[in-house]
């Protein structure tokens, strides 16, 4: 299966996993930081909302590393596109286009609703794929293992329902 961005196969999964592990360990050893990206949503919110929740130390003390790190992710997507033949805005959405076939307005609504689940869910759970799935599981933390099993299970059920029942 080819990537939507490049139209070519991805790098080997072991290489992807090894780079993620290297960055996670470098962040802790070099900067004493626990990998965790969904708190970055709160970093952004904290510029607008000043309730005690958004002013707590875990948010305020982490902005200095998380925001540039998130900027690096944004830049990485741009560089990755440039290296694969040029950057251009696109609405391409792979199997969603083939099976569901909605236009831009439908995709925006779909993605916004999905985003609500991501933003609310990750912050209620206290972490996402990075903080719970990678760091927490590697650190053998019970809450992270439970949360990872929960979001993997919900992802499987949702996609199975969407592509085998609702849009089938």
């Amino acid at each position: 299966m080819n990537l939507i961005l490049t139209g070519a196969p991805p790098i080997h999964w072991a290489v992807g996993g090894a780079v993620i592990a290297a960055v996670t360990l470098a962040l802790l050893y070099l900067a004493n930081r626990r990998l965790g990206l969904s708190t970055g949503f709160e970093d952004v919110c904290s510029f607008v909302l000043d309730t005690p929740y958004f002013r707590r130390s875990a948010v305020m003390s982490g902005r200095g590393w998380r925001l540039p790190f998130l900027g690096g992710l944004l830049l990485a997507g741009f560089v990755s596109a440039l290296l694969s033949g040029g950057w251009a805005p696109t609405w391409e959405l792979g199997v969603f286009d083939e099976v569901v076939g909605w236009g831009p307005a439908g995709k925006v609504a779909w993605m916004f609703v999905g985003g609500l689940f991501i933003g609310f869910g990750t912050r209620l759970a206290g972490g996402c794929t990075s903080g719970h799935g990678i760091f927490g599981m590697s650190n053998l933390e019970v809450p992270s293992i439970i949360s990872t099993v929960s979001f993997m299970a919900a992802g499987v059920v949702t996609t199975q329902l969407l592509y085998r029942v609702v849009f089938a």
Partner: peptide, 25 residues
Amino acid sequence: GTVVGGLLFGVGWSITGMCPGPILV
């Protein structure tokens, strides 16, 4: 919240095909 939030996030990951980091990518 560890379980309920995780379940909600899983639904969102499936709908969008993205978790938080990859949204920015």
